[in-house]
Design a protein around this nucleic acid. Sequence first.
DNA 1: GCCCTTATTTTCCGCCGTCAATAAAAGAAG
DNA 2: CTTCTTTTATTGACGGCGGAAAATAAGGGC
Lengths: 392, 392
Amino acid sequence: MSSTRRAETFPANTPAASQIFTTVLSHGPLTRLEVARRAGLSPAAVTKAVRPLIEAGYLVEDADEPARPTLGRPANPVRVDGGRALFIGVKVTGDEIIGVLTDLCCRIRLARHAPLPDREPKQVLASVAELTGELLAEAADLGVPVLGLGIAVSGDVDRGAGVVRYSPFLEWRDVPLAELAAATTGLPVTVDNDVRALTVAEQWFGAGVGLSDFAVVTVGAGIGCGLVVHGRVVAGAQGVAGEIGHVTVDPAGPPCHCGNRGCVEAIAGDAAILRRIREATGVEVADTAAAVELARQGDTGAREAYARAGEAIGRGIATVANLLGPERVVISGEGLAAYDLFAEQIRDAFTAAAFGSAAQCDVQTRPLPFEEWARGAAATAIQSFIRADQQR
Amino acid sequence: MSSTRRAETFPANTPAASQIFTTVLSHGPLTRLEVARRAGLSPAAVTKAVRPLIEAGYLVEDADEPARPTLGRPANPVRVDGGRALFIGVKVTGDEIIGVLTDLCCRIRLARHAPLPDREPKQVLASVAELTGELLAEAADLGVPVLGLGIAVSGDVDRGAGVVRYSPFLEWRDVPLAELAAATTGLPVTVDNDVRALTVAEQWFGAGVGLSDFAVVTVGAGIGCGLVVHGRVVAGAQGVAGEIGHVTVDPAGPPCHCGNRGCVEAIAGDAAILRRIREATGVEVADTAAAVELARQGDTGAREAYARAGEAIGRGIATVANLLGPERVVISGEGLAAYDLFAEQIRDAFTAAAFGSAAQCDVQTRPLPFEEWARGAAATAIQSFIRADQQR
DNA sequence: GCCCTTATTTTCCGCCGTCAATAAAAGAAG
DNA sequence: CTTCTTTTATTGACGGCGGAAAATAAGGGC
């Protein structure tokens, strides 16, 4: 009855094998020939790599395809058996933690959240362990093993070391979260920055599938950005990157908590919008929902606050596009609830500020259910499990 | 006597072999053991990979080391024999072309330049061919083969295809420059964007050696930026990246030729500084040298123009640092001649606008002799020859 | 049933890189 | 002067991955 089971490992030791698996994971059912083409390998290599993965149950032959009337031997597509394994993703915010149980394809099976009374590492750890325990129990009912736990935290995180270097929000410094959580849960733990985790989810399972260069911009309390360059998530030399929130868009703009003026976040962050509305209209709006309401009712001051926010975001995205030339930028985050209030301004500001062919970048939006952050955490756990650390 | 010699190829077919060579190239003489450590290979693999490279003359054993009194069998360092092969790099500017003859270590052996009467592709090609011919003749005197030609052009260049997609400066569109130049010179030709070429030179032979994430910022007529992320130069999805010159630093700033206001280039580009001085002082300064002179004499308007330029550059660098978290930023370009006039402002603006640990980024300057652009072109030719396209 | 086409698998082969042992080249010790 | 110690480089056997080509599988059309 002891929980000291040995961690299950993925039967793909070679880079090629995990690349093949990742390809199938991201691109749905694929015939072996298609996999070979995409991965740049010979069909024979794919056959050989796929077999042990099928034997271990991670891949299945997708027999129930509608038989297409095609010449020659019918193809025999393989896909990932999502039900083969489960993962847990946890996002720690300032006042609550959100946990999801996902399958191997990162589809959410179950979501839970729990309030976080205290931000001390010990307390957070206890809450994470409790939530994880609940999800593990559910997984046990399903009879499917849970193979990893991903934890997403805002701030400066060293994923390799599993250490939260500095999280201003939690007021943590150098907390070896992966180690601690592994000890309490008995699971392999991956810790990463929250925006990067979300970016991993987009890269493997979302709007970034198949792209080697794209960006995810999150709009909400803060403005964040995850970058994928050369098919890999950018972590920065110091573990920090994508600080689009503190790109200056107007040196004469409002002061930001970072000490500067006119950062994107100081104009388009939730708090900034509320303050702007208060200053412009005198109305004391309680929260973002009230602000959105006010703006939708046509209040000029509120609408203008959102317009300015949109302009700042658009400029920020243009900056990213000008510097990196991504194929696509995905805008996400809780702030999207107000998207109708600044969509036009984002687009206009982006188009105006994007230089040359950077303007061809495809700017998309994607709604962000509250579990999505936790799903990102699960995606990092899946990634670690497959340890396709090498490439995308 | 015919010049239809078959192009010499590099005897390193495997990724590991070219990685080993690149390591030795960048990190000077190294013992086989050191190479193995750096490249993450076994010593045996290094021995085996090095032998054919020595036999072909690309590597030599560096016998003339000062015998260090050390225990054990003395190490036997190898280094690249720069004199084994030569390369030609050509930079095409608006009114002249600059050519250099470099050795395999990218050391400049000879530099030439020629005026460019006309920007038509045909004319440019003829000039390139003529300059290349002169350098080839010199190389023939040395009895060393020239193994590649690199051409650097500003604008949107598809290096893989060897095509200049769009160069506003030259008014070119979709010119297959590599193919054309290969036909006229008989050399393998690499064409790349000028700033990226410079970045390659820094990455392999300069301030970026050993770094996987850094940036090169060029200050001059335009403000450019080359980025290295994950050990590779960023080319962008559309072949354009690093447009730091058109990052907005002040939406209320002066109009830029790109249609926006307050771009870095609209404040810190040569023309912008001249205009600013004219507006502030009424003095009609003829050129940048005169502007520098005026500022050094203490003219308030001129000094302020440079101060503003420095601030814009510093903000631009901070933006790069915030987004990508590079280990180092190297400032280069002709504009550095005026460095004393804005060094302080660059540093202050960078420090102020860099967020969190991005401020730890090491900002350096590096003078840029006029041949340096052409040397970058040669570096791309060397890179193509070794075809270590895979990694750095 | 035979032929055609396309997908997958099998078989064999080369090659790269590791491992473990060995050689080499000193200085140190006696 | 010989032997030992220490560090570096090399050798040779071995295993495994991935490619090429040939074989096999699995239909549809006739």
